Amino acid sequence: MAKSIDYGNLMHDAMRRLIRKVLAGVKADGLPGDHHFFITFDTMHPDVEIADWLSDRYPEEMTIVVQHWFDNLEVGPEGFAITLNFGDSPEPLFIPYDAIRTFVDPSVEFGLRFETQESDVEELDEDEISHDLAEYEAPTEGDSSSPKENSAHEAEIVSLDKFRK
């Protein structure tokens, strides 16, 4: 029997199931209203599948935007596949859920952050959350590359570490 309940991993599993359910809904019905997603993931994760030129350009992490143009969204138990447009060049991607570092929907001020190592974990205050979100910019039509400017929308990132003792 376990000596303690691992709430952190249980919450991460629940958050990944939430992302899977949201993406399955988008696959079935499209993006409703103004919803769109910024998804940051670890490009070095062994199961991530992206073009070599993308992994060269983003050797550690990459933020994709699911908004105006995307195709071939497939949602599976371990991850999702999607084709996005990078400078008028469609590129297929496969992203395992456990490679996701952040999932943000600025249209409703919703965000999730996955902490990867306890040694790297730090508590986020409101200024840090705002600073992190200031990197995101609403993409232009047909652009799915990594946004890095200011955003008109801010979202609250949920950090599980605030609840750990």
Rank of each mutant, 00 (worst) to 15 (best):
T63A: 00
D13Y: 15
I5H: 13
K3Q: 14
H131R: 13
V66F: 09
A14L: 15
Q67A: 13
A51G: 06
I50C: 10
D71R: 11
G76L: 05
V104N: 00
H153L: 03
Q67V: 09
S119D: 12
F86I: 04
Y136K: 03
E61V: 04
E60G: 08
E126G: 00
L93R: 00
M1E: 10
K162L: 15
A24Y: 08
F110M: 07
I50V: 12
L112I: 12
Y58A: 02
W69L: 14
E49Y: 08
S119T: 14
R164P: 05
H12D: 15
A24M: 12
E135C: 03
D105S: 03
S151E: 02
V26E: 05
H36C: 12
I5V: 13
N72A: 08
W53Q: 10
L23Y: 07
E109D: 08
W69G: 09
Q67H: 12
E137T: 13
R113Y: 11
T40M: 12
A51W: 04
N85Y: 08
L54I: 08
I129C: 03
V75W: 03
V22S: 15
L31T: 02
M11S: 15
D71S: 11
F103W: 10
S89P: 02
D88W: 08
D161R: 14
E61C: 07
F80G: 00
T43W: 00
D52F: 10
P139M: 02
A138L: 11
P46M: 04
V158R: 09
A81S: 14
T102Q: 04
K3R: 13
S107M: 01
F38T: 02
I82M: 03
S145A: 07
I129W: 01
I64T: 02
D125F: 01
R113Q: 11
D42H: 07
R164E: 15
F86K: 02
H153N: 05
I95C: 03
T43C: 03
E118V: 14
D6M: 09
G33L: 10
A99C: 05
Y97N: 02
P46G: 04
